[in-house]
C-alpha cells in the first residue's frame, strides 16, 4: 500500500503544480487544493501507516502500549485540513473580486499593480 500511496502523492504534487502553472485563476485555486491534499497525504504516510489501530486509549487502560497509529501527524493534518478550508475560501473570494475589478482572469495580465486604476 505504501508504494501505491507514494505514487499517489507524486501524482497529487505533479497535478497541483501543473494547475498552478496555468494562467487561469480558477485553475490556480484547484492546483492549490490538490497540492494541499498531496502535502497532507505526505505527512500522513511519513508518520507510517498502521491498519485498524487508532490512537485511542482503551477504556480500561491508562496509556497506549502496543503498536498504534502515530497521533502527532494526525493532529498536524487535522489542523492543516481546517486551515486550508479558510485559505481556500479566502482565495476563491479574492479571485472572484480580482476578476470583477480587473475584468480578466488571465494571471499574465495581472503582473503590474499600477494599471488597474487607469
Amino acid at each position: 500500500m505504501e508504494l501505491l500511496l507514494v505514487i499517489l502523492i507524486g501524482l497529487l504534487y505533479a497535478s497541483g503544480i501543473f494547475m498552478m502553472l496555468r494562467r487561469s485563476m480558477v485553475k490556480l485555486i484547484i492546483g492549490l487544493i490538490l497540492l494541499g491534499n498531496g502535502a497532507n497525504m505526505l505527512i500522513f504516510l511519513l508518520g507510517r501507516i498502521v491498519k485498524g489501530k487508532p490512537p485511542l486509549i482503551e477504556s480500561s487502560a491508562k496509556m497506549l502500549t502496543e503498536i498504534y497509529a502515530d497521533p502527532v501527524p494526525q493532529a498536524l493534518i487535522l489542523t492543516a485540513i481546517v486551515i486550508s478550508f479558510g485559505l481556500q475560501s479566502f482565495a476563491i473570494i479574492l479571485v472572484k473580486r480580482a476578476y470583477k475589478i480587473t475584468d480578466t482572469d488571465d494571471l499574465d495580465e495581472l503582473n503590474t499593480t499600477d494599471e488597474i486604476y487607469e
Partner: peptide, 20 residues
C-alpha cells in the same frame, strides 16, 4: 509545464521512499 511538474512529482515520490 507538464514535464516540469511530472519531474517534480517523481522527485517527491522518490524522496518519500527514501524517508520511509
Amino acid at each position: 509545464d507538464g514535464i516540469l511538474s511530472l519531474f517534480f512529482g517523481t522527485l517527491i515520490a522518490i524522496l518519500t521512499l527514501e524517508v520511509l
